[in-house]
Design a protein around this nucleic acid. Structure first.
Length: 796
DNA sequence: CCGACTACTGTTTTT
DNA sequence: CAGTAGTCGG
């Protein structure tokens, strides 16, 4: 395609004033953006007054490259939101109370910090998962709810048990971040929002500097990002947003697709261009995708269409289990490549959850097929890498107590928990950082005699390395560091796979430092420790995916957005996976629809061939369970093939499911309006309540369990309602419950599967698992074994 | 204070 | 199943 279509051309030609490009999948969006930038430049707009914002580094890089190839040598600022904010904060740090050398916390540091605060305030970190606390905090912050806002809101009505913890932890978390001269991902954005809203002079300065702002994947912006973009487009409202509400898949992390509507309201006279012609996929794939997404209620989008050829039909294949599924896929890829029909890089395998990648990896290795995994676990998150990064962070930012705690005893140098505790106490009383406190170890009476020397030694080491760091040569600094702490010695076993692996990672880190320095050579900023840390903190594994690497690509459906491959496999199209169990359980139709969009995104990555797969049984957390086909399957026109010798399964009719969603919605809304008590529980009350619940039933199943147990339901917001679930039953949790309520042979009822009989009930710790035989309504001759929330019926 | 062992719990998705 | 928080003996 060399010529632009009419609507594409319109978007490119639009000059000043707000522009919204609604771009369906494969409609040439990136091309429009890059051409538009080129056109702006041709019109005499200075390159440095253009700012393009993306969500991922990969998208940023790609866009920059394409602009560069269109007009070689021209540098336009293309950056991710987070990186852009980091850079602004370096320049204007004093507006928000940071120092210029602030460091970026990674996600496990965030958890560590929350955990530390919880312990400090007196919450038990085993009854409340710090990650969930952090999640809530993050959610609130995404909506620009400050710690004070949160507290005020919760003076007025009771949240659930977690909120009571958040209530205490949230303010402290923010305070400590600032105190440590640290930011987390959210804070990066929030500080910029504060900065721009609190200082109109600065806002206007930046507004005028970035006269033309482009935002990609606009449907994924959260409130903070929206505010930033808007603040930069007041005086010069030349904002161009591209997005697709049908590809909004980040609601869970605060994305607001409604920002699209908001945009039109906030900016008068917005020009709207809609791109609906798909240039990527065959007609059968486009049709399939359109059928799927048309099941979502939509407001202002046209149907997708294409002039491409029909292509082979979309296929759904059914395998007996996950192993077979992975093996057959691997075998097919191997065969198509060996016969010369395809190359490895033509293929991509998508899945809903990272856990599913393993079976495919194993199978591909067995068939000697090269592959790359865009895993959720980033290189920079491996323990050994994070240790070294922790050192670097402390070297750069002496106040980074989180980093200090992480590395002070790694490798072990005789500084245990107790010592760190005493040190923290001292540091707090004297208002100094842990590193400063360590330097003064000799003068701290509470310390034991034998902990003083290693502490002093540690602080001396850091100071020494800080001097070394001034040169800006990160690789040399790293080498010196590794040498000083004799880091390789920790993993010296040549025969141990883990050890060699870790060593390799360390070498890779050294290599990354080298690459960074090379890349910085001709950039405007010289290489620095700060720059390297920023790179490490804001880079994810998905960024390293290279479509032309000559390998099959494995990734989650989320990570797949924005990419395209000739042949796509989508694994595990099963109820509970896609839609994910949690999306079903929370009963909110919005979550269910987001799952549908997610599948839509996955499906529209395929250019020529699309294969969906499903199994009859799948192993999950060590348990083999029967599956149920995804309710999305009957929504699409495709060929269903059973690859084992069983008959193809019958698909559930969507109408029945829709009814379920409607009912769920009603129940969900009913749950929202449950009256709540006026006061938040105190920490002491909370612990009491918890103890009571531990003895009676599990805390999170507030509605059903609490009601049954006579716990005042009005003090707890019912957390979950089950539409259908094939997950494990997580409540009631004591052996008494499991034994008496779910004794073998006991008749039970499930909201969807109807009557069944208990096969066995087992409990371990706070978990009870009940296995029930149901006569499933949609598979007449098969029995489905399900673990699910149940209501005992009849007498015991 | 350290390391080895046990018990328990559960990531859906990510900048 | 697998990763880890927590416990216990040295």
């Amino acid at each position: 395609m060399t010529n632009l279509t009419e609507p594409q051309q319109q978007a490119v030609d639009h000059f000043e004033g707000p522009l919204m490009v609604l771009a369906g999948p494969g409609s040439g969006k990136t091309r429009v953006i890059t051409h538009r930038i080129a056109k702006l430049l041709a019109r005499g707009v200075a390159p440095n007054s253009i700012l393009a914002l993306t969500f991922t580094n990969k998208a940023a890089r790609e866009m920059a490259e394409r602009v560069d190839s269109l007009l070689n040598g021209v540098r336009v600022e293309v950056s991710t939101f987070h990186r852009f904010c980091a850079r602004l904060l370096r320049r204007f740090h004093d507006h928000v109370g940071l120092k210029n050398n602030f460091t970026i916390l990674d996600s496990s540091d965030q958890v560590a910090l929350v955990r530390a605060i919880m312990k400090d305030v007196g919450f038990d970190t085993t009854t409340h998962d710090p990650r969930r606390i952090l999640n809530r905090i993050s959610k609130a912050r995404n909506d620009l709810i400050t710690a004070e806002d949160f507290r005020m809101q919760h003076e007025e009505r009771v949240g659930d048990l977690l909120d009571a913890v958040v209530y205490e932890v949230f303010p402290e978390y923010e305070r400590l971040l600032l105190h440590n001269n640290c930011v987390d991902f959210d804070a990066l954005l929030l500080h910029v929002v504060d900065m721009l809203s609190g200082n109109d002079e600065l806002r206007e300065y930046l507004d005028l500097q970035f006269r033309f702002v482009l935002v990609d994947e606009y449907q994924d912006t959260n409130l903070a990002q929206y505010r930033i973009v808007r603040a930069l487009s007041q005086h010069c409202p030349n904002l161009c947003a591209t997005g697709d509400p049908d590809q909004s898949i980040y609601g869970w992390r605060g994305a607001r697709p409604e920002n699209i509507v908001q945009f039109e309201q906030d900016f008068g006279g917005t020009k709207i261009v809609s791109l609906d012609q798909n240039f990527r996929s065959t007609a059968s794939i486009v049709r399939c995708a359109d059928q799927l997404i048309s099941h979502n209620p939509r407001r202002h989008r046209n149907a997708l269409h294409t002039d491409n050829e029909e292509g082979p039909p979309v296929r759904m294949r059914v395998y007996s289990d996950g192993e077979m599924e992975a093996n057959e896929i691997a075998a097919e890829i191997a065969e198509l490549v060996n016969s010369g029909k395809r190359k490895y890089s033509d293929f991509a395998v998508f899945y809903r959850v990272n856990a599913l990648s393993r079976s495919v990896e194993t199978a591909l290795s067995r068939h000697q097929v090269p592959f790359q995994v865009a895993s959720g676990f980033s290189f920079y998150e491996r323990a050994e890498v994070r240790d070294l990064i922790g050192y670097l962070r402390l070297i750069e930012n002496s106040s980074d107590d989180v980093a200090f705690v992480r590395i002070v005893n790694r490798p072990a140098r005789g500084i245990g928990d107790k010592t760190v505790q005493r040190l923290t106490e001292y540091a707090r009383q004297n208002g100094v950082s842990l590193l400063d406190a360590a330097a003064k170890a000799a003068d701290i009476p509470s310390l034991t005699a034998r902990s003083r020397k290693p502490l002093k030694g540690f602080s001396d080491l850091i100071h020494k390395l800080q001097k070394k760091a001034e040169s800006g040569n990160v690789r040399k600094l790293l080498e010196r560091l590794i040498d000083e702490i004799d880091y390789f010695k920790l993993w010296k076993d040549e025969n141990d796979e883990v050890d060699t692996d870790r060593k390799a990672n360390i070498y890779e880190l050294l290599r990354a430092a080298e690459l960074y320095e090379d890349a910085q050579e001709d950039a405007e900023h010289p290489p620095s420790l700060q720059g390297f840390l920023e790179l490490a903190g804001l880079t994810s594994e998905a960024d390293s995916v290279d479509e032309h690497k000559g390998a099959v690509t494995l990734m989650t459906m989320h990570a797949a957005k924005g990419l395209e491959f000739p042949v796509v496999f989508v694994l595990g199209v099963e109820s509970g996976l896609i839609p994910h169990e949690r999306a079903i359980r929370d009963g909110d139709p919005a979550s269910f629809q987001e799952e549908r969009r997610l599948l839509f995104v996955a499906v529209t990555r395929a250019m020529e061939e699309l294969n969906l797969t499903q199994t009859r049984q799948r192993d999950f957390r060590g348990v083999r369970r029967y599956t149920i086909a995804s309710p999305f399957i009957p929504e699409m026109e495709m060929e269903v093939v059973a690859e084992d010798d069983q008959p193809a399964p019958q698909m559930r009719q969507p109408s029945a499911l829709d009814e379920f969603v409607i009912k769920a919605k009603q129940r969900y809304q009913a749950a929202q309006s449950v009256p709540t008590a006026p006061k938040i529980m105190s920490a002491a009350d909370l612990e009491k309540k918890l103890a009571a619940m531990k003895a009676g039933s599990a805390p999170d199943d507030a509605a059903g369990a609490a009601g049954d147990k006579g716990i005042e339901a009005d003090r707890l917001r019912p957390a979950s309602f089950v539409v259908e679930s094939i997950g494990q039953m997580e409540a009631p949790a004591t052996s008494t419950d499991a034994d008496s309520l779910f004794a073998a042979g006991r008749p039970v009822r499930h909201p969807r599967y109807g009557r069944g009989v208990v096969l066995e009930a087992s409990e371990g710790g706070s978990r009870a698992t009940v296995t029930v035989l149901f006569e499933a309504d949609d598979r007449e001759e098969t029995f489905v074994t399900a673990h699910c929330p149940l209501q005992p019926i009849g007498a015991g």
